[in-house]
């Protein structure tokens, strides 16, 4: 089954389609689109500046954690237990890094794919893990930071639980399908 051409078309055309649709509806409704655009775009700078304190707090804390080697320590101490559950040792750090840093998770995944090879189970499992989850802490910082929310209430716990569910489901689904 080869639906890659279809996917390529969707990912190429989604963005242009949305932009043309919005501009066309604006013109049909006789909106002064240039004026309205610049009016809305003014907020871009403000929003980006607003999120800096929140990003600094979260990204510095996470950079420190990654530099300390804590993630490898946790992964190593759990490896014997998780090996029994059919989780390859090289994929373990991905589980912990994925919610913390998107670029680091993608980097880890590239390493696994290069070292283990394209057909390895590790590569497939890591691919599903990285593809099915989000960088929880970054999302929280940006979304709440943009409007100055300081108390996240239960949003953080929902995010973390979702990450745990995503990791478990990735393992279950991959061991079943591959």
């Amino acid at each position: 089954m080869n639906f890659q051409p279809v996917l390529n078309i969707i990912s190429l055309w989604a963005l242009p389609f949305i932009i043309v649709l919005i501009l066309t509806v604006g013109m049909v409704k006789k909106i002064p689109i240039y004026e309205v655009f610049t009016e809305g775009a003014k907020d871009g700078f403000k929003v980006a500046i607003n999120i800096i304190p929140y990003l600094v707090a979260i990204i510095v804390a996470i950079s420190m954690l990654r530099a300390s080697g804590a993630i490898e320590m946790i992964a190593n101490s759990l490896s014997s237990v998780l090996a029994r559950l059919n989780i390859p040792a090289d994929v373990l750090p991905v589980i912990f890094v994925r919610p913390l840093s998107g670029s680091a998770a993608l980097g880890l995944f590239s390493d696994i794919a290069t070292n283990a090879g394209a057909t390895a189970y590790s590569t497939k499992l890591a691919a599903v893990m990285v593809g099915s989850s989000e960088t929880t802490f970054y999302v929280l910082a940006v979304y709440f930071g943009s409007i100055g929310i300081r108390k996240f209430r239960y949003a953080l716990w929902v995010g973390i639980l979702a990450d745990i569910i995503a990791a478990i489901m990735s393992i279950v689904v991959c061991s079943w399908m591959f």
């Binding site: 919005i22 509806v25 604006g26 409704k29 909106i31 655009f37 809305g40 871009g44």
Partner: peptide, 11 residues
Amino acid sequence: LGIMKIAEQSG
């Protein structure tokens, strides 16, 4: 944010 403002004003 500019594009979205157009989307909002056009309904």
